[in-house]
């Protein structure tokens, strides 16, 4: 199938099973540059698996994923890794900051993985930390900051490379609603300002409300609500 016109990232008929557990059973997806799409659904419905497939972390059993006109299945693991390094950004629920690095080093990490010099990477990192209002934490280690601050650091890290797609898997899952909303605001503002697309996995409607449209996954099948209405 041909990806919907103008879409940056699109998936068609994705199937994925972990042993006997079917996680995806013919899921569809597409997103345009600058668009925020929420993937919703009850837990165990395959939301995270869809995100992992879209991001090229997990190869699907079958189906096609095209990013910017390129078919992901034809890329090597190294190419997909490079893609994730330079074109994608990631925010997870927890366990993503390297505990022994300081916050600014954590944010600079993706740039450094791409070969940017330490000094330059940390300067760029500090800029993003300012935007996310956590620049005063630069010398602290993740263990010394609160959950909301840590998550903002994680968002800064996801954005520091100027990604075209930002993948967020329950980014507010471990936060209270006030902190969660602040993180969502900062995340979507930042993404809009750079015209990045955001793939947002959440089961919370109020988080999904920060999206432009939602896709509901149930029993491994997706439903694009905009087209359904």
């Amino acid at each position: 199938m041909i990806a919907p016109a103008g879409s940056l990232l699109a998936a068609h008929d994705l199937r994925k099973a972990y042993g006997p557990t079917v996680a995806l059973d013919g899921a569809e997806f597409s997103i345009h540059p600058g668009e925020v799409v929420a993937i919703m659904g009850p837990s165990g419905s395959g939301k995270s698996t869809l995100l992992h497939c879209l991001a090229g972390i997990v190869p699907p059993d079958s189906g096609s994923i095209t990013y910017d006109g390129r078919e992901m299945a034809t890329m090597t693991d190294a190419q997909r890794s490079a893609l994730r390094r330079s074109e994608f950004g990631f925010v997870f629920q927890f366990g993503q900051l390297v505990p022994e690095l300081t916050c600014v080093e954590n944010v600079a990490l993706p740039l450094r993985l791409n070969g940017t010099s330490r000094k330059e990477a940390e300067r760029a990192a500090l800029g993003w930390m300012q935007r996310l209002e956590v620049d005063d934490l630069r010398g602290k280690r993740p263990g010394e900051v609160s959950g909301g601050q840590g998550q903002r650091v994680a968002v800064a890290r996801a954005l520091v490379t100027g990604p075209r797609v930002l993948f967020a898997d329950e980014p507010t899952g471990a936060l209270d609603s006030l902190n969660g909303e602040r993180v969502m605001e900062l995340l979507t503002d930042a993404a809009r300002s750079t015209n990045a697309a955001v793939v947002l996995v959440t089961h919370e409607a109020r988080v999904a409300a920060y999206s432009d449209r939602e896709i509901v996954v149930r029993d491994g099948r997706s439903r694009d609500m905009e087209r359904a209405v």
Binding site: R206, A208, S211, E214, E226, V229
Partner: peptide
């Protein structure tokens, strides 16, 4: 239910936008 959810979310988006 799905239609209703979409409608609810649409309202929530407007409210969220206004809130921001």
């Amino acid at each position: 239910l799905d239609t209703q959810r979409a409608e609810h979310l649409r309202s929530m988006r407007i409210l969220t936008d206004r809130k921001r």
